[in-house]
C-alpha cells in the first residue's frame, strides 16, 4: 500500500530554480547541483570479435536527464556497465567531471530492472547497504522521500514490484551520487505504477540534482522524462534529440511531443 502523503508529494510544484520552459539544454542549475559531467571519447566495447559499442563520442552536461533508447541487444546495458565501472571499455576513455576514470566509480549508482534487494536484510538495512556513520537516519530519510517511511522494518519480499523499485531508488540515492544510471527500472511495472515512478523520479532528480541516464525501450517514457534522447544503433549514437518542451507541457498527445517521438522511432 502506498501511503497517501507520498502521492501528494509527487505533485509538489517544481522548485523555482528549475529552468523549465526555456527549452534550452545543458548544465542543470536545479537541486543541490551535485550532478557530474559525463563524457565519452571514442569509447568502444567488444565481446570477443563482436563489437557492441563502436565508438561513442558524447558529452552529457552535469545535471542533465538523458534517455537512451535502442533495440534489444543494442548495447545499452553494456554502456551502463562501462559508466559504472563494472566492466572496462575495450578502447577510448570515459571521463567523469573531466577526469578519466577506470574501475568502480564511487559517485555513480545504478538502478537495475530487477530491484536486486538483499532478501536477508530488512528494507532499512537494504537502503543503508553502504553503512557508514549515521546511515540509519540517512536511510530512513531517503525512505521517507520515496514514500516508504513506514516500511523500514519489512522484509523485501512483502513489497510490491513498484515498492521494491522505490527502495532500490532510495538505496541508490543514499550516498548522493553525482550520476544515476537507470537500466529500464520500470519495465516490469504496470502503467499506473509506472506513472507514479515517473513522478517520483522527476521529483528526486530535481531535488538531488544528479545527472540521470535512463535506458528504456519505451520512447514515450523517454520523451516524457528526459531533456535529451540518445538513439543507440549499431554501436553508435545514431541520433541525439533535444526534447525542447517544458515538462509541464508534455501531456500525452502534445503535437510537438508526437513529432519528436516519431523522429526517435524512425531512428531506432
Amino acid at each position: 500500500m502506498v501511503p497517501l502523503r507520498a502521492v501528494t508529494d509527487f505533485e509538489e510544484p517544481a522548485p523555482a530554480t528549475c529552468r523549465e520552459g526555456t527549452g534550452e539544454q545543458g548544465a542543470g542549475t536545479h537541486g543541490t547541483g551535485k550532478g557530474l559531467e559525463l563524457a565519452f571519447d571514442g569509447v568502444t566495447k567488444a565481446f570477443g570479435d563482436v563489437g557492441v559499442l563502436r565508438g561513442l563520442d558524447l558529452v552529457i552536461p552535469a545535471g542533465q536527464f538523458v534517455a537512451v533508447v535502442g533495440r534489444s541487444g543494442g548495447g545499452k546495458t553494456t554502456l551502463m556497465r562501462l559508466i559504472a565501472g563494472l566492466d572496462g571499455p575495450t578502447g577510448g576513455t570515459i571521463r567523469i567531471a573531466g577526469t578519466a576514470r577506470r574501475g568502480l566509480q564511487p559517485d555513480v549508482r545504478l538502478l537495475f530492472q530487477d530491484a536486486r534487494l538483499l532478501p536477508w536484510q530488512r528494507v532499512l538495512s537494504n537502503v543503508g547497504i553502504a553503512r557508514g556513520p549515521g546511515w540509519k537516519a540517512r536511510a530512513q530519510a531517503l525512505l521517507a522521500e520515496v514514500g516508504l517511511a513506514d516500511r523500514a522494518g519489512d522484509w523485501p519480499y512483502v513489497l510490491s514490484g513498484g515498492q521494491k523499485q522505490r527502495v532500490a531508488l532510495a538505496r541508490a540515492l543514499v550516498t548522493e551520487p553525482g550520476i544515476l544510471l537507470l537500466d529500464e527500472p520500470f519495465g516490469a511495472l504496470d502503467a499506473l505504477t509506472r506513472g507514479d515512478m515517473h513522478r517520483l523520479l522527476t521529483k528526486v532528480w530535481r531535488q538531488h540534482g544528479f545527472t540521470a541516464v535512463l535506458i528504456t525501450h519505451d520512447v514515450a517514457e523517454a520523451v516524457a522524462l528526459a531533456d535529451r534522447v540518445l538513439v543507440l544503433r549499431d554501436g553508435v549514437i545514431a541520433d541525439d534529440v533535444a526534447i525542447d518542451l517544458p515538462r509541464a507541457a508534455r501531456a500525452a498527445g502534445a503535437p510537438r511531443l508526437a513529432e519528436l517521438e516519431r523522429r526517435i522511432l524512425n531512428a531506432v
Binding site: L86, L104, R109, L110, R116, I129, A130, R131, R171
Partner: peptide, 16 residues
C-alpha cells in the same frame, strides 16, 4: 552474481 554486483557498486569492502 547480481547481488554481489550490488555490493560492489556500493563499494563494500571485501570483508563486508
Amino acid at each position: 552474481r547480481k547481488l554481489v554486483e550490488v555490493g560492489r557498486i556500493h563499494r563494500l569492502s571485501g570483508l563486508d
